[in-house]
Design a protein around this nucleic acid. Structure first.
Lengths: 144, 144
DNA sequence: TCTTTAGTATACAAATTCTATAGACTATAT
DNA sequence: ATATAGTCTATAGAATTTGTATACTAAAGA
């Protein structure tokens, strides 16, 4: 399961994607709109800023805005930043690899292949899901 | 990421699958072989027993053994028993469905479809991975 | 029937992770 | 100057995970 932090991040980013190139949005507005505790949201947005997904502007009229294009931010990137590894086993993670403690020998491990398969499919599906597509999909769905 | 409990369960079950129809194996032996804290393993095996995956025999010469056939136990079942939902969002879970707190309207949610896709692929891959196949795969790999 | 073996059950403790908050500080616009 | 709004560090509380202790029950066999 995704953490709350990650879900908050996704919703905040969708909110900002809907307002792409319309100037900075302040934290309080996002927090109110998405019902996210403000201080918690601050920490989240900061991380996204440090990862160059967002930019911010201080002072009056400041706030956060998307730095990357909505087509260039996908769910995989967000999940990795917030929750870490995508894979279900550390020994199968591309970005957060670690040998499994419980495992005696990776080469003869009978479950690794399956989890590599799951990881690859997850990666494929979620990397196709960009902010741009998500926003578009929500527009279509809300018109029905 | 899978919990330790779940990984312990998988390893214990593989151990028992390798000894299918060779009589009960006691907890201590499994604990030693797989380096699992005995008391923790007891709790795990008990749950698997209550789920009719294992049976046990008390008293001298007792222990645990597979009740289901190795071909009939797959990774999905084990993960569900130990860790609960497979899905990355509660609103997308088949067996542990709950509406997402953060979500305003499931019908217009732009990310749901992607996570349904991930869930289905995960289900497909991990339900094909049975104890029988895992044991077989380990034999093949260890001969190389 | 008594003893030993081994699983069952309940309760609890330690460790870790997740969620949330507080407060002082810094930059910017007007 | 001053009000606005993001930055940074620290920490507190809650929940979950992992592991342990103790007492109890069932079965096997001498």
């Amino acid at each position: 399961m995704l953490s709350k932090k990650c879900k908050y991040a996704i919703h905040a980013l969708i909110y900002l994607a809907e307002r792409y190139q319309q100037g900075p949005v302040h934290i309080q507005e996002i927090a109110d709109a998405q019902r996210i505790p403000k201080k918690f949201l601050e920490a989240i947005l900061l991380e996204l800023r440090n990862a160059k997904v967002l930019h911010s502007k201080k002072g009056k009229g400041g706030g956060y805005y998307l730095y990357k294009k909505p087509e260039e931010v996908n769910l995989i990137e967000i999940i990795r930043l917030m929750d870490g590894a995508i894979a279900m086993l550390p020994c199968v993670s591309l970005n957060y690899y670690e040998p499994c403690e419980e495992c005696k020998d990776e080469k003869t491990c009978g479950i690794r292949d399956s989890f590599i398969g799951v990881r690859d499919e997850t990666l494929r599906i979620l990397s196709e899901s960009t902010l741009a597509k998500i926003v578009k999909r929500e527009k279509v769905l809300s018109k029905k």
